[in-house]
């Protein structure tokens, strides 16, 4: 049988001194996926990918990346993967092209890093030293370095940190393009929109455990299935809304009313409002987002 799992993790555990960083997690990543690991700070995301990259030794469990054990076959694995590490840097005086040329020296076969320089918007900075690059330029160079050996799997840890909103969008497009060429992408992030937009599947980590794992839409459907219907009115006698079918909750914030419900709740609420002579101009519904899922699972907002 053809095994299309690029990464297989089973019962992975890792502790620092006596503090458990990863507590028995298992998952698979399929060939050609963009797989996201989402979670609050200290949830164990970085430790997990560092175990996969062969940068840290696990305490127990099994890991296979491209069929290799990152601990036993570290050096042959590292030639086939790309890594953009969180908060890593280069020597201040190394030039952009020198860094790409240096990191390309590991790749099997020739690599044309001049294409990468153009794709990642560093053409004008080709001869600039790392130390004089802006935060965004540095980050783009570090991502380009992760891709310079034409990896089969690329690990990107907080890749859009330091990028402005426009550059983030461009980066997302580039990551999709990389995936379309057949590279599997493992994305560690704490940006909800990034995970929701980019990832085929998302694992949400909390306290060293994998709390949920699914497609963004399924995560929302399962964990945050309530739709919000929002409108404004000066009327206070609206408790009858609670008895409308499919309505679960009702809350009032000044003139703003929030109705939580499922299924056809918008249409039902709208028709009842009209019947009661309330015709709000701002009636709208809000779909649940990944952020709601995240809040529900981890009990905290991502912005800490």
């Amino acid at each position: 049988m053809l095994n299309c799992n690029i990464i297989e993790v089973a019962n992975l555990r890792k502790a620092y001194k006596s503090v458990s960083a990863i507590d028995d997690i298992s998952f698979q990543v399929q060939d050609g996926e963009i797989f996201g690991l989402l979670g609050p700070n200290g949830a164990g995301k970085t430790t997990t990918v560092e175990c996969l990259q062969g940068l840290r030794h696990r305490d127990s469990g099994t890991i296979r990346v491209l069929g290799l054990d990152p601990q036993a076959d570290a050096s042959s694995l590292k030639k086939q993967i790309g890594s953009q590490l969180q908060e890593s840097a280069l020597p201040d005086r190394i030039k952009v092209w020198e860094a790409l040329d240096l990191f390309a020296s590991h790749s099997i076969g020739a690599v044309d890093w001049s294409t990468l320089i153009e794709q990642w918007g560093l053409k004008e900075k080709r001869d600039a030293a790392f130390g004089v690059l802006s935060g965004g330029q540095r980050q783009r160079l570090l991502i380009a370095l992760a891709l310079v050996n034409n990896p089969k799997v690329v690990f990107l840890d907080e890749m859009t940190t330091g990028l402005d909103p426009a550059a983030r969008r461009v980066t997302w497009d580039l990551i999709r393009a990389i995936r379309d060429r057949g590279t599997t992408v493992i994305l560690v992030t704490h940006f909800m929109d990034e995970a929701e937009n980019l990832c085929d599947r998302i694992g949400i980590m909390n306290n060293g455990k994998l709390a949920a794992l699914d497609t963004p839409q399924n995560l929302i459907n399962i964990h945050a299935n309530l739709i919000k219907v929002i409108f404004s009115t000066e009327r206070t006698d609206i408790d009858w809304l609670k008895s409308v079918p499919h309505v679960h909750n009702l809350s009032r914030h000044g003139q703003r009313i929030e109705v939580e419900g499922d299924g056809p709740v918008l249409a039902l609420v709208a028709s009842e409002l009209v019947k009661h002579g309330i015709v709000p101009v701002d009636l709208r519904k809000e779909q649940p987002s990944l952020e709601d899922v995240f809040l529900k699972i981890t009990g905290r907002s991502v912005v800490e």
Partner: peptide, 18 residues
């Protein structure tokens, strides 16, 4: 030491520099 401090060494390590 500056290589270790700024994680340059780790970056080397991640791409199979021995």
């Amino acid at each position: 030491t500056s290589y270790r401090e700024r994680r340059v060494l780790k970056r080397f390590h991640a791409s199979s520099f021995s």
